[in-house]
Design a protein around this nucleic acid. Structure first.
Lengths: 139, 139
DNA sequence: TATTTATTCTACCGATTTAGTAGATTATTG
DNA sequence: CAATAATCTACTAAATCGGTAGAATAAATA
């Protein structure tokens, strides 16, 4: 399951994606409309900005807005950022690889082989879906 | 990511699946061979038995052995048992459904729609893979 | 330049989950 | 009855999750 933080990130991105122009939206507006706790949302938006998906402006007239195009923002990237690896086991993770303590040899580990397959199939799904798909699905 | 408990469950099932006859294997043997902490393994085996995947015998000559055929033991079932829902959000879970607090209407929620798709695709993978696939992949 | 606006940074907090361990109990075999 | 081996109850330490408080910094404007 995705953490609330991850879900909140998607809600925030979706809200910003629905804005016609790319002009700053206040954290408090996003918080009210998406019902994400404001202080919690701050940290999320900051992370999204650091990842290059959003831009921010401080001071009056400031706020957050999309920096990337919706079709560039992949579900997989957002999930990795807030939820961690897509893979089900560290030993088959592309971005967070770690060997298993108990495993003598990955080559002959049946679980490893199957989890590799699962990872590849899962990536096909979440790496090809983007914020644009969420926006299109929205009423 | 899967919890260690879930991974351990797969290791234990795999070890029992490699046994030719269906005769009892000691917890301590499974623990030593799979390197899963014995006391932790006890709880896992108990859950697998309660789910009908294993049978146990107490006393001398006792132990655990497979009750179901390897092709009947689906990855999805093991994951649900030890790791929880397959779906990424409670609002798209078949077995653990819960509505979102912030969601006014699931019908028009784009995230909901996309996560439904992701769940369906994911299920196609993990509900069709079984212990037999793990065993076949093993040396 | 002072004030207001609004993001950013640092630091905390309670509750839950994870990954275990210890030890008594119950069932089976011989 | 003695030995064996699963079962049950009850802890525990550490990490993660979800969230809050408040000070610091940056930008606009009067």
């Amino acid at each position: 399951m995705l953490s609330k933080k991850t879900k909140y990130a998607f809600h925030a991105l979706t809200y910003l994606g629905k804005q016609e122009a790319r002009k700053p939206v206040l954290i408090s507006e996003i918080s009210e409309k998406t019902k994400v706790p404001k202080k919690f949302l701050e940290a999320i938006l900051l992370d999204l900005r650091k990842a290059g998906m959003l831009t921010s402006k401080m001071g009056k007239g400031g706020g957050y807005y999309l920096r990337m195009d919706p079709e560039e923002i992949k579900l997989a990237e957002v999930i990795r950022m807030f939820n961690g690896p897509i893979a089900l086991l560290p030993c088959v993770s592309l971005n967070y690889y770690e060997p298993c303590d108990e495993c003598v040899d990955e080559e002959t580990c049946g679980l490893h082989a199957i989890m590799l397959e699962v990872r590849d199939e899962t990536l096909k799904i979440v790496a090809n879906k983007t914020l644009k798909d969420i926006l299109s699905a929205e009423g």
